[in-house]
Nucleic acid binder design. Structure first.
Lengths: 116, 116
DNA sequence: AATGAATATTGAGGAGCATCAATGTCAGTA
DNA sequence: TACTGACATTGATGCTCCTCAATATTCATT
């Protein structure tokens, strides 16, 4: 996945009618597809899920590697994709990196899918 | 995309708490990711959009090729993916194939994404 | 400074996917 | 039966992406 020209969800869904209201433009379709691709992966869905279900709605990478069952570089890779896409935010404290959900990001995408 | 073991959205989302309520299982993540991958493509998003915005909420392939701007086999390919995933239904009348939205399919996915 | 721990980045291999040209299938028609 | 039109399938090509090993970076501790 090339994440040059990645723009966060909040921009993608700032405007615009839901998917089924009127024929969408090619550009709008590209943007929404980019956001959807970021969450269309089982490892990333589980990362989101674990982060959301964690105490304080945040988790550090060290807490995510074992439950996900992938290598540390791969987990970091997925976290970067989710962060670049605007679904997660990152804050570093000491040597640890903590990730948390960006409020409303998932809901924005969900709103675009909903029918009427 | 291998569509062996493809199961429609309705089954994927029959049960289960939204993504952020509790840590999801690997199987559930796989299923949801499969559904999301089906719509995480600009051409397929536009197909859904055009079908939904058409008169009677249905459109035949011949009406879709020109606005999408891809070859006829490619459009058929995308329509098959959306149909297998449970987002579109197909009905053949004469030599024409008409596609329409499966009611509630998109909403089911949207419900899983929504936060709390 | 040197060491160790947590995370990120790089590079590579292999699987998956979008696309098209060519061909196949099937219904309607002459 | 032959032919035409609408759509589906097959096969090939090139690109995208997931994954890991190896390496780099960054921060705290000694």
């Amino acid at each position: 996945m090339s994440f040059t020209n990645m723009l966060p969800v909040s921009d993608v869904v700032a405007c615009c009618a839901p998917l089924t209201r009127e024929a969408m433009t090619a550009e709008h379709a590209d943007d929404l597809a980019r956001s959807l691709r970021a969450i269309a992966d089982p490892a990333r869905l589980r990362l989101i899920s674990i982060v959301a279900a964690s105490a304080n709605q945040e988790a550090c990478v060290c807490d995510l590697i074992e439950p996900i069952g992938l290598s540390q570089p791969t987990v970091s890779h997925h976290l970067k994709i989710l962060t670049d896409a605007g679904f997660l935010s990152r804050s570093k404290r000491g040597t640890w990196a903590f990730y948390r959900l960006v409020p409303g990001a998932l809901d924005s995408v969900a709103r675009l899918l909903v029918t009427a």
